[in-house]
């Protein structure tokens, strides 16, 4: 299991109705590809985050399937249209079954 996995997100606290805002997310994770070998020649088992989902008030904004070639500490920056006040949720799914979550509120008006 990956150690020290910590999600962090940056979302504006407020927005105008219908405004398109920028969102940045980063999660610290080794993203071990499963292709590398250790000093004794044994394969280091794959351990990556394989899916990332962001949603606003339950509606999916982005749903990403992640593959082993993605580098350490995956970073996503994307934009979303904010129609009303609500909560943006972020979910990362780890190969080992762990699920990491974060949420931020955005006020409209």
């Amino acid at each position: 299991m990956a150690d020290n996995v910590r999600p962090r997100v940056r979302v504006p606290d407020s927005a105008a109705a219908g405004e398109v805002v920028s969102i940045k997310t980063l999660i610290s994770h080794p993203m071990e590809s499963g292709q590398r070998r250790d000093g004794d020649g044994n394969t280091i088992p794959r351990s990556i985050i394989n899916r990332f989902v962001a949603a606003y008030n339950g509606e999916t904004i982005i749903d990403v399937t992640m593959e082993p070639a993605i580098s350490t500490n995956p970073y996503f920056e994307f934009q979303a249209l904010i129609p009303e006040s609500g909560t943006m949720t972020f979910t990362w799914y780890d190969d080992d079954g762990s699920v990491y979550e974060d949420a931020k509120d955005i006020a409209v008006g």
Binding site: N4, R8, R10, K24, L26, S28, N73
Partner: peptide, 12 residues
């Protein structure tokens, strides 16, 4: 600081 990957080391 959000875009500076060095901050991960600082947090650790």
């Amino acid at each position: 600081d959000f875009d500076n990957p060095g901050m991960l080391g600082v947090e650790s």
